[in-house]
Design a protein around this nucleic acid. Structure first.
Lengths: 337, 337
DNA sequence: ATCGCTAGTGTAAGCGGTTGCATGAGGGGG
DNA sequence: CCCCCTCATGCAACCGCTTACACTAGCGAT
């Protein structure tokens, strides 16, 4: 139905090679010929078929993006960053929400073969070994927040540890001593790093501050449960640091329902700085993760690797976080008190 | 580098046709042969090249998704719904954040030629005419919330009108009479439909309730300004219905700053039920738009159209909304008073 | 006039699959 | 024992585009 290169060529009385040259802006075509061809392209409403082009050139101009889950603003922001960077470079994005299991992730990766020039992977299962097995190995990839620092692939990590440490120090600096931590999933890299940062900072701060960790799984519900549990304690914490903002919001909800004042009775802090954090009452003190930037940098990394294979083989970049102090940590209250 | 069909065929001493049959599960292959081939496939780590397959079959197993902007939870939710539905069907998603202009949107659409089997479009520029011009015309497409009811394409619309009407009735039922509406962008389809729903309901409710509309543009800032303006009025409204939640949040902020109590002095309602709505204080009464479901149904629509070309040519489905009553509309306050 | 260049164009061989048709080998019924 | 049918497999022609290479014509230099 749709017009093909040959149709254009026939119509213009030239060979397909010439049409191809015109389409791709390669030189060595008379202006007259070029104009004639362009006219016909226009008339026939010809659009090159990308599948054919990909097959022929081996390039797809597409980057595959694997994300663990499309839930929440966190990913929405990352995707936005990725999309912007991709647009800037004229690349397409093949999105894949993943993945109950490593097997599923592997499947997703193979399914991408021939569809993408590079991979952007954010998945708990994606370590280098995994990639070596399943990615053709030739496909450039950048990992976001993955446990393994690149053997053959470069990776981009958020400074979870540093951010968590900074938060603990902030909470301590405004007078809190019993700082509880609501952890994330045990098998999640970010979560364990944040926990580690918390533990290190607590240890650093010395005997006055004690380590206390409750389980959680990054979900709002788990935060809610954690907060309820914390409230039953004999020695209630005077600050709760949740492994991410959603968890913190769950805590907030539980505290509100229980009539516990934040930050009056207990300070609260999260991690991520999702847009929501600004809006809740009290506004949530948190650690900002530059999500859009993270996505954009990752995409740029993949794109560069696609463009210059072999170069910059396996860097590991750390993306800095930023402490964002708002009302929920009680900073102002303490200071004005 | 990577193994091809031919490599497998050579190794297995069969023709490519046979290997192809095995790969695609077509019948008429001896178990012995099949096993041998599968073994070699495994050993060579062969993965079929999708570009080649697409070229050959004309199918990509991919749906192109055009969204106006990847900002905020609204789209994040839609994408999630789309992704889930796509996964369920084994389809890939080619995502394209769009678009300053109709021209850009058009460009994006053509760039998708040969990459996708169908299109999922949510864009202010996407009316039927636009599609007819730019989509090859043969590509099935589903429009989300687009002004034009499908000539050649089917569309999926949120019941903005009904939802807005229900909200007005709710506000009236809890005793409010002077119900102001903060409108959205004049050229936005959702916005105008919501306005229409508001007007209809007001008219329906008779003389006691009067129509009063202030301009806005869906942004938080515009809500803030609108609320400020409403507060200067001689006859202040006792309820403010904002065209979307972000606008309502802007209003809330302005009211708070002005010391106007919500819902004590004025009731407030929004539209969308973004996750944030639950968290603000007072929690926002709003109209829930099932965003994930919207995305999922749209995807299903495209997929069906791809599967059965010609069938179900141009339906227009309406997705129902749901009134979500929370504290901000003062329902409980009135009822217990 | 002859030669060598260059610029413009055509020829055709892929890229890696899919698939209609042909082929050949068994197998059962008459 | 022959015929026909079925099943497993091979052959080869695409799908639409890119591109190395071949070719021709024109032109300046010798």
């Amino acid at each position: 139905m749709a017009a093909t290169l040959r149709d254009v060529a026939r119509e213009a009385q030239v060979s397909t090679a010439t049409v191809s040259r015109v389409i791709n802006g390669h030189g060595n075509v008379t202006n007259a010929t070029r104009a004639r061809i362009l006219g016909i392209v226009e008339r026939l409403n010809y659009v090159p078929d990308s599948a054919a082009r990909s097959l022929s050139t081996g390039l797809t101009n597409t980057i595959g993006v694997l994300l663990p889950d499309l839930h929440g603003e966190f990913f929405s922001e990352i995707i936005r960053g990725i999309d912007q960077a991709a647009r800037r470079r004229g690349l397409h994005l093949l999105l894949s929400g993943v993945h109950g299991s490593a097997a599923e992730a592997a499947l997703a990766i193979r399914a991408l073969k021939g569809r993408v020039d590079g991979l952007l992977i954010m998945s708990p299962y994606a370590d280098s070994e995994f990639l070596a097995d399943h990615s053709a190995g030739d496909t450039p990839a950048v990992l976001i927040n993955s446990p393994v620092r690149g053997h053959s692939h470069s990776s981009l990590c958020v400074d979870n540890r540093g951010g968590a440490g900074a938060m603990v120090e902030h909470l301590a600096s405004v007078g809190h001593r019993r700082i509880a931590f609501v952890a994330g999933p045990k098998d999640n890299f970010d979560a364990t790093e944040r926990l580690a940062g918390y533990c290190e900072a607590v240890a650093r701060l010395g005997p006055g501050v004690r380590e206390f960790v409750v389980p959680g799984d990054f979900s709002e519900a788990s935060g809610y449960r954690a907060a309820q549990r914390l409230m039953t304690l004999d020695e209630r914490p005077d600050a709760v640091f949740a492994a991410n903002d959603m968890t913190a919001l769950g805590c907030l909800l539980a505290f509100k329902e229980a009539g516990v004042s934040v930050p009056g009775d207990v300070a609260l802090a999260g991690f991520d700085d999702i847009p929501l954090a600004r809006f809740v009452a009290p506004a949530l003190t948190t650690v900002r993760v530059p999500m859009a930037e993270l996505g954009a940098r990752a995409l740029d990394g993949v794109a560069d690797a696609v463009g210059a294979p072999g170069a910059t083989p396996s860097s590991t970049e750390i993306v800095a976080t930023e402490l964002v102090v708002r009302a929920s940590s009680g900073a102002r209250a303490r200071m004005t008190a």
